[in-house]
Design a protein around this nucleic acid. Sequence first.
DNA 1: AAGAAGACTTGACGTTCATGAAGAAACCAA
DNA 2: TTGGTTTCTTCATGAACGTCAAGTCTTCTT
Lengths: 247, 247
Amino acid sequence: MYAAHAPETRPATRNAHNTGCSGCAHAATCQAGGYGEATLSGLRDIVERVGLLRDGEYLYRPRTPFRALYAVQSGMAKTVAVDSSGREQVLAFHLPGELFALDAICLGHHDNAVIALGRTQFCRFPFDRLRCLTTTQPDVQWHLMHTMSRQIHQQRLSGGDYPAEERMAAFLTNLSDRRTLLGLRTDHLPLPMSRADIGNHLRLATETVSRLLARFRDARLIRVERQGIEVLNGKGLREIGRHLLQA
Amino acid sequence: MYAAHAPETRPATRNAHNTGCSGCAHAATCQAGGYGEATLSGLRDIVERVGLLRDGEYLYRPRTPFRALYAVQSGMAKTVAVDSSGREQVLAFHLPGELFALDAICLGHHDNAVIALGRTQFCRFPFDRLRCLTTTQPDVQWHLMHTMSRQIHQQRLSGGDYPAEERMAAFLTNLSDRRTLLGLRTDHLPLPMSRADIGNHLRLATETVSRLLARFRDARLIRVERQGIEVLNGKGLREIGRHLLQA
DNA sequence: AAGAAGACTTGACGTTCATGAAGAAACCAA
DNA sequence: TTGGTTTCTTCATGAACGTCAAGTCTTCTT
């Protein structure tokens, strides 16, 4: 990426010592909080903010000890695994409020990297404090389980054997739906990741990503920009990807 | 499948009222129990046995309410999702002791089916009782989180873009490794599912599954039987699939 | 501002794996 | 057993998508 895109959410609290969620634009819908004030109030006390990372900077790397769960606070990020032959695999893209690093719990360390896409801020939930919280607050425990269940459920979508066009349409529609949940605009989808990242994530060559976007453009479904797309016909996109979207 | 394969684990407790784990061949390594007696003792009190299902019979179907988590007790099972166009997708195969239905927690109902492969028995953990248990026994809660984390971690393997041969070899090696954890023999892998099931799971045509098994046979890596394979050169298999196996 | 480097797009070609067809083997029912 | 059904295997063909290559545009550097 070349330049950070303009921030579309209001910046985090200026005061570095105020680590609560009151200043967060996503507090209402944050998955890390979710389900109302009661749960959020517990998490709010332990959350820390991780400074402003710029495009390409690492939040954590493989083989670092697992100390905390994270969520994006503003911006966007990707999780990348590297296999034994050095090939990278983009496992997921993270939007504001979406919790990640849940896969590291069972290992005790991270075995993949999280990298900022454009200027990005994160929320950090120290795991030892989180464990204390769950023993005293059943709703936090319940919510965490809920979140993990959702990730297990969601991941299954990306395994299927569907044509490139359907995977691409489903990917864009999924992004749009997740933004709806967060109260962000869906007529314009920022895509701060490279075409190579998208292709890697969808098991497609970079060139195929380009060709598919061009095809959608020619079909008047989207307008293609360098760092995003404008959605002209969301229903049409959803229709193409319908087989992958929910049951 | 044509006939149930001979049971390779000793049968469950004859006494239907004895729903504990003392009679279970997998109690020591059961993922549902795992981590020693303390955890297991809590689960042992709430577990129920679900009768002997025969090949092709359903444990649950899509759109049924979520009431319990399950594990295979003996035999094998598959989880199958059906998309909006009726196409099936084999999401996972389950070995004895492996917990599933974790994806239904967030929905409140099952959105996929679990089907017995050969004669299979299941353990059932009623979820309301499990929730009680987790509030009082932190180790049960911890273990459940651990298990969910592992599933999130494992699923990521199946998403990658690797050649058919590597996916096949990794699949067989993974099965073998899971059997090792359970203390089952690994020189012979029962495959009670159809070639179509394997292919579906690995995003391969049935014919490709056959061709790959034939190729492995010709390379003296395995001996192919109708309902399983004999592993002649496990290291060789692992070498072919190494890119997909762990980081 | 000029040049360089990197990201994206587009086209031509090739490889992998799916598809279609047909035969072989295993299982089931009488 | 025998016939019928299903699963598995093997071969021939083809399509989807990857790879290679060239060219354009953007952004970064000096």
